[in-house]
Amino acid sequence: MMHNRLLTVAWGALTLIVAAGSEVVALDGKAVFAERCASCHNATGPAPASLEGVLERKAPDLFYAGSKFNLDWLEQWIQSPSPIRRSGVMFLNHVITEGGKDRINEDTIKACPSKLNAEEAGSVTEYLMALKDPKMRTGVISRDKKFSMAQALRLFTKQYPCIGCHTVKVKENETGGISGPSLTDAGARLNPDWVYARIMDPQYWDPKTWMPKIELSHEKRETLTLFVVSPK
């Protein structure tokens, strides 16, 4: 009798330990984010509304990450983060003037120091991908739609000022400015519908972004989007 009771207690304790163990295994992405990412990334909004706030922002806003990113890219990137903006999160924090010319002091640009393991990355990705902008139109861009590369290049590099700030690959050569994020891997990184929405109204996403809002027809904006997300 005594023996049986002991067994029951032991079994109960074992069950508790296993249950507790499995709770640890199923990571809470929001909690991991709070501990490892939230000191630099804003996942609740809003974006800064003044130059001062922009200068203090340490890392890109993520409160609409689920609208902006492709899941696979995000999960990979979190495991081996590397800078996407050659001029840092905000160029003014990294610019130096030498001999009358501005340049970025690359020593001051640090990669995200929070490298997560696969399990942590999976949970954080799940959390971030649920952070969607409720107003963004989806299903606007069909990634496989054919477009004229010649027209896209004309729009991106000549007719509109995109190339001034963004680096793209043109015929295997990287070309363009650096004050905005590089777009050489944008197809893997960004949701085409978000690229379209971002071009349409940059200040909706980030009121103090240094990207201009330019009137464009749907067709031109669609061509620019397809160009940005196309493998180049």
Binding site: L51, S87, V95, T175
Partner: peptide, 30 residues
């Protein structure tokens, strides 16, 4: 925003911190 702040945020990326036309994007501009 003051004019100085707007100039820093929007203009210096191409026109330069001192306004001399040699901003960080200048090398890539046609």
């Amino acid at each position: 925003a003051t004019a100085q702040e707007n100039y820093r945020l929007y203009c210096t990326q191409c026109h330069g911190i001192t306004g001399n036309g040699h901003g960080i994007n200048a090398d890539g501009l046609a």
